[in-house]
């Protein structure tokens, strides 16, 4: 996907906006179509968002899936998966609050689970999510959708559906802003970029 046209004024002075609201919307629409194509329909698809922004993205994808396949019941096929208690870095960080895990009523047994996250980085969150899913049931398949893949994987994990591949350095910070969560217009912002730092500030 091509990056969208440059915005007239950057609303995020501490970083560079790489995707604007319309880019995010188009990427999600494309991912929704890819999910339907890959699953040959949307009958057995369950979208599980990883808090916080993955949950919002999962809901948006569910809306698009029901637009594509009217038989898809968005509310009954969307859930959230908190992976805090499965993380491998708990002892390296201050105690994290445990989030909510909410599965669709019908469960995930035998269905195609699509994990939804905002930024894919080391892959450790997804590793934790796979462990969490293993304790919740046995889906037919697990796929991974993310809005941004910024590289630097530390585990053999690969996304199935990507909104945008963003080559980054580890010193940069990639933030996904969503109107429901952050109260500002949707955007993907990179900050701390060394070569453009002078320009950005």
């Amino acid at each position: 996907m091509r990056p969208g046209p440059a915005l007239p004024a950057d609303p995020h002075p501490d970083g560079t906006t790489v995707l604007g609201a319309s880019d995010v919307a188009r990427a999600l629409t494309r991912i929704a179509h890819e999910i339907v194509e890959r699953a040959k329909g949307a009958d057995d698809v369950v979208l599980l968002g990883i808090p916080t922004r993955g949950v919002t993205l999962a809901h948006r994808l569910a809306e698009r899936l029901s637009a594509i396949e009217p038989a898809f019941d968005a509310a009954a096929s969307t859930g959230e998966l908190d992976v805090t208690m499965y993380r491998d870095d708990l002892r390296r960080q201050p105690t994290r609050a445990v989030g909510v895990t909410r599965l669709p009523q019908a469960g995930i047994e035998g269905r195609t689970v699509v994990l939804v996250d905002d930024v894919l980085y080391s892959g450790r969150t997804i590793r934790a999510a796979l462990d969490a899913i293993g304790d919740l049931g046995r889906p037919r398949a697990v796929r991974l959708a993310c809005l941004v893949d910024r590289g630097h994987r530390e585990l053999p994990i690969r996304p199935d559906f990507v909104g945008k591949n963003l080559p980054t350095s580890t010193s940069e910070r990639v933030r996904v802003l969503l109107s429901e969560v952050d109260g500002v217009e949707d955007a993907v912002v990179i900050s701390g970029r060394e070569d453009t730092e002078g320009d950005a500030r």
Partner: peptide, 23 residues
């Protein structure tokens, strides 16, 4: 309140078939 909220999440895991967490 954090303790009670965390307990609520822990309680939710205890209605699952696999109750054990690797934490």
């Amino acid at each position: 309140v954090l303790l009670l909220d965390t307990a609520a999440q822990m309680a939710a895991t205890q209605s699952r078939e696999i109750k054990k967490l690797p934490t």
